[in-house]
């Protein structure tokens, strides 16, 4: 009996909400019409109607009018400007959603508004990652601007969300880009230093980030390898020994301690164990090389890494 009562109460509550929404829809004819047009994918007509709605004195004070406006703009962004990093539709959509959250009756659309905001914020994040991969000599302003938009809107879309993971991921992406720019011009330390700075920044955010230790180690090791690669028949004996001294010091004092740290944090990660093999081989540590080779064999045997990770 009690159960039936609760059921009836729920039903009544739903009916009341529906009635209130219907009545509001009747009070907001422009917004309701825009929503209908949008549902039918008549986006230009929907936008026109929605713009009239948010310009209307009565409708513009209602959250619903701005919510519909944000939604229409978001649909246009998806249909016409998805992937366009400087999309104005996206920017305007976000502003409308944000406005909607501040207005009368906002709570009735809050869940969906946040979901829409989360979607748009995540597109900023994706675009920031994409922009990071096309950073050139002109700098990282575009990627930073996009990421700043993500950082601004994501916590509004999802209050209490931790941004550290995203910040690390984005910073890694920039570090990776600078690393590959350095690989193209190994004589220029500018990109190497910028890549290093990114990974150091990650360690400030999280001093247990295995990838950051690993990547920093690889940067130092690469620096040494590029020095070794220059040795040829024109290299004087003294010069060769000087190069070797500097390069081995870099591996011994910079690359290896960082790889050790990565290993300490992730002793069963294939690429880290392989990194240990390569660094110890570079220092002619025969016993260590044999030990870590046997570790790789064990990890494969135990199914913890696949055979292709040992290469």
């Amino acid at each position: 009996m009690g159960h039936s009562m609760k059921h009836i109460q729920s039903l009544l509550a739903c009916i009341i909400i529906l009635l209130s929404l219907t009545s509001r829809a009747q009070q907001l004819p422009l917004a309701s019409e825009a929503a209908r047009l949008c549902r039918e994918m008549q986006l230009d007509a929907a936008l026109e109607k929605s713009n009239l709605s948010i310009a209307d004195k009565t409708e513009s004070s209602e959250a619903y009018a701005w919510y519909v406006n944000g939604f229409v703009l978001k649909e246009i962004y998806k249909a016409r400007e998805y992937g366009l990093r400087n999309s104005t539709y996206r920017e305007e959509a976000i502003k409308s959603f944000a406005n909607s959250m501040k207005l009368k009756n906002a709570s009735q659309h809050l869940a969906m508004t946040r979901l829409a905001l989360k979607y748009l914020a995540s597109t900023y994040y994706n675009d920031a990652l994409q922009a990071a991969q096309s950073i050139s000599g002109s700098g990282e302003d575009e990627a930073q601007t996009l990421f700043a938009s993500f950082v601004k809107w994501m916590p509004i879309a999802e209050p209490g969300i931790s941004m550290t993971g995203y910040e690390k991921e984005y910073t890694k992406s920039i570090g990776q880009r600078y690393f590959s720019l350095w690989q193209r011009d190994t004589d220029s330390p500018e990109y190497r230093d910028k890549a290093t700075a990114q990974y150091e920044k990650i360690l400030k955010l999280d001093d247990s980030d295995v990838d950051a230790y690993y990547n920093l180690s690889v940067i130092h090791y690469n620096q040494a390898v590029f020095m070794y690669r220059k040795i040829d028949h024109e290299t004087d004996l003294f010069d060769m020994m000087t190069i070797q001294e500097a390069a081995s010091k870099l591996i011994r004092e910079e690359a290896l301690p960082l790889m050790d740290k990565a290993y300490e944090l992730a002793p069963e990660k294939g690429e880290v164990v392989r990194g240990k093999i390569i660094l110890h081989r570079a220092l002619d540590h025969e016993k260590d090389v044999e030990y870590f080779k046997s570790e790789i064999a064990r990890l494969i045997r135990e199914g913890k890494i696949t055979a292709d990770q040992q290469k």
Binding site: E169, V218, A224, A282
Partner: peptide
């Protein structure tokens, strides 16, 4: 898209035998 970038985060270590 985010996952793709996570998987690609480790740099390649050159296999040169420097010794």
């Amino acid at each position: 898209a985010c996952l793709g970038s996570v998987l690609a985060c480790a740099q390649t270590i050159p296999d040169d035998n420097t010794v």
